[in-house]
Design a protein around this nucleic acid. Structure first.
Lengths: 119, 119
DNA sequence: TCGATACATAAGCATATAATTAAATTATAG
DNA sequence: CTATAATTTAATTATATGCTTATGTATCGA
């Protein structure tokens, strides 16, 4: 579940989302991306690092340049992760164990919220 | 495109993602969510406000309590938005117009990055 | 009307994020 | 080997985020 959040965070930034879309279409060097997005090269580098960290981008050095491309496969994987998260029952999702326990008897949960609710 | 980013941001936080999943399954009062997540009531309130702001949550007051539920419909909409974003050609996505212009002749883009690349 | 409960809003604080400039790497060309 | 170019990493800064505590608002019951 943490991985899903990390990946969502990776694409929920306007600049990174644009970068990701661009490198999914074709390869780009860091310099080219900086020009396209009108931001500094280090900024692009750092965004690419984050995309790479969650598996959404790959780099390939060719001579002086490093070309980045988006991972279609991991995009599909992310999409599926997201779909599963919402489709699966809560008690089958890791990260909800504590919550599921509390949820098990909602009566006592309610009782903790008020002492009149169920009267 | 900004809307997509806003919606992605709304669910790319561990706590909000949990809240969203919970209220998609069934209604919960703010107090109940606070108990389930072991965070303060105002914290829950603020997360719910963000989810509501992007249409992913709805509230319904019943007496003293306000019950929140997730919007299945808007979840589907978000999923589609995301799928379209990656499926559509770049020049059909609003927000890429400046980039598309630059991309139009990549030769000059490359030239800006180096004076030797194409030699 | 008064007191208690549920929720929202405001204020404050610590941390995360996204950008920039500057310095360190890595690779090519001579 | 040295100079130059592309990239990364580091340092800095401004802003956003998420949480808490404190305060305000609304509903219910006595």
């Amino acid at each position: 579940m943490q991985e899903l959040v990390d990946r969502l965070k990776a694409i929920s930034d306007m600049t990174r989302l644009k970068i990701f879309k661009l490198i999914l279409e074709q390869e780009f060097s860091v310099c080219e991306l900086a020009r396209l997005l009108s931001i500094s090269q280090p900024a692009v580098s750092q965004h690419l690092r984050r995309l790479k960290a969650v598996g959404l981008a790959e780099e390939e050095r060719r001579g002086q340049w490093i070309y980045y491309k988006g991972c279609q496969k991991e995009l599909v994987s992310l999409t599926k992760q997201l779909a599963s998260f919402f489709a699966d029952p809560i008690d089958s999702i890791e990260g909800f164990s504590d919550i599921v326990t509390l949820l098990a008897n909602r009566a006592s949960l309610d009782a903790e919220c008020t002492n009149q609710k169920e009267l």
